[in-house]
Design a protein around this nucleic acid. Structure first.
Length: 705
DNA sequence: ATGCCATAGTCGTCTTTGATAATT
DNA sequence: AAATTATCTTTGACGACTATGGCA
């Protein structure tokens, strides 16, 4: 065989390959076994075709079954062609296609499959459980009498008021250095004790120490953390965001792991993404304008060159935007110019810039090249320079550290009134009562709020609501609430027993008093508000009012007015039926059934053939009323069956039994029964009823079983 | 930075009541 | 003679949802 033996492929197979090639943009292979029927069908490479290969004759093949098929040329590499030359049956022929980038190349983006989503959700859940367990470990350590005693160094606070708390927090902030990582001393208690001794520790440890001290002072205090959990969605973007505190280096080691190789993009930084990541860091560094801090090591020379090439200073451009856009947008009525969210974030970022540490820059440098990843893993924790922090701290409370607020304490302050208040106390960042700033600071640090959980008494409580002003922004990043509440339920009991105060009223109030979003998109599935334009096909507003406000001219309705409708059959499965004389709340069109023959004829009166479904709301319903069993006779439908769409659809006085050969048993016992039809199946191109067991009168249940 | 729209891809839902021949 | 079982065939349209990119 010559170098480029040619064979022909039916277009069907070609198309199939092209689609996959278009996605993967790699070489594709088709293995065809001689005796494999499937292979023949798909590629038509059989024994007769082998002869064609020898002759290098690109003739039509498979005359019979390929009638009407189109054929295209393909190539077989010489090596594989030789192999294919063997006359042994059972040998395989490998046809290899090389994807040539053509003009018709599609930028097809592979989407996440259901399996990947499920895996991501599982990882998310497992991670949540781990973080809950972690929180309980820390909470327990905060109760450690030895640690509490060690902390008790002459601080004599008998009564708590804001000023004394402030001095405590300030003492903590002055005394402890925050480091990115600490060596594990075997237990969290040991780590805390070591941190206490050395006056340096992770944010987690220092925060835990503060909780321990508050408890030693007989205050009711909780350890609170914004749990930094892996994403719920299989989105690698979350992994690719800049890691500011440098504590989670392990994620960068993952691309080498076999798990990562198996599940592309999962938990890994692909090279491309790493670049993006680095780019982002560049821009952040530029924004800080503190590149002078860079140590000119050999590793960073090329980097600094890159940076100097970037003439467009982001800070400058942003300032320009400010000056040009502000007069246009905000000069009309208000004397005080309102701040956009971006402005707030920018200011915070500027504050962060002032306190940027050498450690972080080094980390950034290390992440730039793949060779330096090793050094990144080895690098010794660098102390945060307190000098820098003090530069940043000014009259207004800011997050003086560059790290995101992940750990803080809540102290219960009784005050004069009966109802107390949980007060946010962050010794890491030297902030008291800054709960309204947490969300913005977290957003700036790319660690958005998702699950803020408070730990006490071995239990835990979700207090995200206290810190979240825009619930709709974070709700899509959380697991389904049923699962989460089920997990938390026993922990909440423990927490409540320890703190003896339920702030549920406060959290509930916050949940119900969210401001109206200003953009329309936010009203999609918003938990409180609704726009008519975002209603689903099976939804209506009932009643249509009151109007709570307007968004871009569209009236805003309470979400409670949105009613989800169902067809008569849909309600039937829930054991409900539509009341008499009720007219449909909405009529929607259904997809047309295709009838192969004479489709053109139906075009003329297409509108009349459009099937519709009548939908009803729950206000039009009443409990299902079915004829009950009488004298051991099961009421059946016109087909002699009982439709068991759900157990709620059983006629009164009957039961649904599903056991093998139960028909015969009922028959031999002379008991009246009816087959239970539980649904439909699509087989042979048509729907077929699916049966499962029988329905008999309840009194015969035991006899039959 | 943000909002808004279009586009494109994946997934779930809705559809909603055999015929025939062979074998037991 | 009656009952049971195997085989045939293997939808497809649309909405919801979600990334992504372009543009303002």
């Amino acid at each position: 065989p010559a170098t480029n033996a040619r064979l022909q492929m039916p277009v069907a197979g070609q198309v199939e390959l092209e689609s996959s090639l278009g996605i993967k943009r790699k070489k594709g292979k088709v293995n065809t076994e001689r005796n494999d029927d499937t292979g023949k069908k798909r590629c038509s490479v059989g024994s007769s075709e082998k002869k064609k290969l020898e002759e290098k004759e690109p003739e039509a093949i498979g005359d019979n079954d390929a009638a009407g098929m189109e054929w295209e040329d393909g190539h077989v590499s010489p090596v594989e062609c030789k192999e294919g030359y063997s006359h042994d049956l059972g040998e395989t022929v490998t046809v290899e296609f090389t994807d040539v980038p053509s003009s018709t190349e599609k930028k097809s983006v592979r989407r996440h499959t259901a399996e990947e989503k499920e895996l991501a959700e599982l990882m998310h859940k497992v991670h949540l459980l781990c973080l809950l367990a972690r929180g309980r470990v820390i909470d327990k350590a905060c109760n450690d009498p030895l640690i509490q005693h060690l902390l008790w160094n002459g601080v004599d606070t008998l009564k708590l008021d804001a000023n004394k708390l402030r001095s405590l927090v300030n003492w903590f902030h002055r005394t402890f250095c925050i480091i990115a990582r600490s060596a594990d001393k075997g237990s969290f208690e040991s780590n805390m004790a070591f941190a206490l001794q050395s006056h340096e520790g992770t944010a987690e440890e220092v925060c835990a120490l503060s909780v321990a001290l508050f408890r030693a002072l007989n205050l009711t205090a909780r350890f609170v953390t914004n749990m930094d959990v892996v994403g719920l969605k299989p989105d690698a973007k979350a992994m690719g965001t800049p890691n500011q505190d440098g504590t989670r280096l392990s994620t960068r080691a993952l691309p080498c792991s076999p798990v990562a190789a198996g599940h592309n993009e999962f938990n890994t930084l692909s090279p491309a993404r790493l670049e993006v990541n680095t780019e982002h860091r560049f821009s952040r560094a530029k924004q800080r304008g503190d590149l002078g801090n860079l140590k000119r090591t050999s590793a960073c020379k090329s980097l600094s060159k890159n940076l100097s090439n970037c003439k467009a200073d982001q800070y400058a451009s942003t300032s320009k935007d400010e000056s040009s856009s502000s007069p246009n947008s905000f000069t009309s009525s208000n004397a005080e110019i309102p701040k956009r969210k971006g402005d707030v974030e920018f200011e915070l970022q500027l504050q962060m810039a002032l306190s940027a540490t050498g450690a972080e820059i080094q980390e950034m440098l290390a992440a730039t090249s793949s060779q330096s990843i090793g050094t990144l893993l080895d690098y010794t924790p660098l102390k945060k320079l307190r000098k820098n922090a003090e530069v940043a701290s000014n009259s207004s409370a800011v997050w003086s550290r560059s790290g995101p607020p992940l750990y803080w304490a809540e102290v219960y302050c009784g005050g004069q009134t009966l109802t107390g208040k949980w007060v946010h106390v962050d010794v890491v960042n030297d902030i008291i009562d800054g709960e309204r700033k947490v969300e913005a600071a977290s957003a700036v640090c790319r660690k958005p709020l998702r699950y803020v959980v408070a730990f006490a008494g071995g239990g835990a409580k979700d207090v995200t609501r206290r810190y979240c002003l825009q619930w709709h922004r974070i709700v899509q990043g959380r697991v389904n609430p049923e699962w989460w509440e089920k997990v938390l339920a026993p922990l909440e009991q423990l927490e409540l027993a320890a703190t003896n105060d339920s702030e549920d009223m406060e959290l509930q109030t916050r949940a119900l008093t969210e401001p109206l979003p200003t953009n329309q998109q936010a009203y999609r599935d918003h938990h409180l508000y609704a726009l008519e334009k975002w209603l689903h096909k099976n939804q209506v507003l009932h009643p249509k009012g009151p109007v709570l406000g307007f968004c871009k001219g569209h009236p805003v309705y309470p979400r409670s007015c949105v009613q989800t409708l169902q067809s008569r059959h849909g309600w039937l499965t829930e054991g409900l039926q539509v009341r008499e004389n009720e007219s449909p709340a909405k009529i929607v069109t259904r997809p047309k059934r295709i009838f192969n023959s004479q489709s053109r004829e139906s075009n003329s009166n297409e509108d009349e053939l459009q099937a519709t479904t009548e939908l009803y709301g729950k206000w039009q319903l009443e409990p299902l009323q079915l004829p009950g069993a009488v004298n051991g006779i099961v009421p059946k439908n016109e087909r002699g069956q009982v439709d068991v769409w759900s157990e709620k659809c059983l006629p009164p006085g009957t039961v649904h039994l599903s056991k093998p050969r139960i028909f015969q048993v009922a028959k031999r016992l002379g008991i009246d029964y009816a087959p239970a039809m539980i649904g439909f199946d699509y087989r042979s191109g048509r729907c077929a009823p699916v049966y499962d067991g029988i329905v008999v009168c309840a009194e015969f249940k035991n006899a039959i079983l």
